[in-house]
Amino acid sequence: MDGSGLVTNPPPQTVERPVSIHGEAEIALKVLGLEKVFRSGLRRRKTAAIRGISFLVRRGTVLALLGHNGAGKTTTLNCILGLVKPDAGQVSIFGYDHRQRSSRAKVGYLPERPNFYEYLTGRELLTFYADLLGISPRERSRQVDSVLTTVGITARADLRLRKYSKGMLQRLGLAQALLGAPELLILDEPMSGLDPLGRREVRDLLAGLRDSGTTVVLSSHIVPDVEILADEVVILREGLLVATHRLDALPRDCVYEVRLGELPTGDDAADVLRACRVVRGRGGGGPALVESCTPVDLARLLDVCSRTQIDIHSVQTRRHGLEDLFLEVMGEQKVPLC
C-alpha cells in the first residue's frame, strides 16, 4: 500500500502487482489478483464475489478489510485459507503457497459467528484443536490453560458448549485461534456477538498481540474498532478493492459541530456561514446545526452569535477519521475537507 490516499474504482481486471512493495522477508501475507466467481442454481448463475484483489500485509502489523456486508471480505479470507478455491490469483503465507498444508501451521483463524461441536466442553475442544496442530500432550495442557485464561473463560472451560452464550463461543473461537502461538491471525468479524465490555477486552487483546509482533488480518464493518486496532485498511465494495490506506496517514483535523437556537442573520454572519457547513436549519427559524471547519471559523461564528444574541446550545469537537474516509469511498457522504 502506498499509504498516501485513495485508490478509487480500480478496473475490475486482475491486478498484476501488489499495491505496495516491501522486502519479501517482511511480508506475512501476499495476495495478488484474487478472483472468485460463485455459481448457483440450476442455470449456474454467476456471481462475482471478489474481483482482482491484491494487498500485502507486513509482519507485525494489523490490516483490516473494511466493507459492507457482501463486499467480499469473508470470501477473501476464505480464499486465503484455502476453504474456497480462487478462480485466479495467488496467495502466499510467510512465503508458502496457501494451497500447501504447511502454510497454515503458523495461522490462527476465527470465522464469523464461530460454531463448534456442542457435545464437547471448551477444554475438550481446545485439546482437539491442539492435537490438530501437533502440540505435544504436556505442552497442550499448558497452552489450553493459557488461552482459556487469555480469553477469560477458564471458569466455564468444563461446561458443554451447548451451554455457552454467543459471546462465550466468540471468546472460545478466539482461544482456538491463539493455540500454537500463531504468527498470523485471520479474524472474520472478531468483535461480533460481544457486549461492549467484551469488545473492549478483545480489542485490548488484539492490540497486545500486535504489540508482541503477531500479524493480524481482520475483517469488520465496525469502523471505530478498526480505527483503534488497524495499521492499514483495505476497503472493499462489491468485490472490488476501492481504497487502501495507512491509518497513521489519515487527516486528523478537527471539525466543530455547533447547535444554535436559530441561524444568525446579517452580512457578517453570512460571511461566516459561507465558510461553514450548515447541516440543519438553513431555511431560517428553529434550531440549527452548523458544522464549522476550522478553529478560526468557529471563533467567528461564536462571535457573531454573541453579538446577535443567538443561543448557543452546544459546541462539540469531532475528528476527521476513518469513518469519513469510509463513507466518502462508499459514496455515501461527502465530508468537507478542512
Binding site: 476464505n78 485459507l81 484455502g82 476453504l83 498444508r101 504447511s102 497454515r104 501451521a105 495461522v107 483463524y109 476465527l110 470465522p111 459467528r113 464461530p114 460454531n115 463448534f116 461441536y117 484443536y129 490438530l132 496442530l133 501437533g134 473461537g173 482456538q176 485461534a177 485471520i186
Partner: peptide, 14 residues
Amino acid sequence: DKRTVTTILAKPIS
C-alpha cells in the same frame, strides 16, 4: 452446514 469444519481445515490438516 454448521461450519464446524472451517476452523478444522484452517489448521494444518489436509
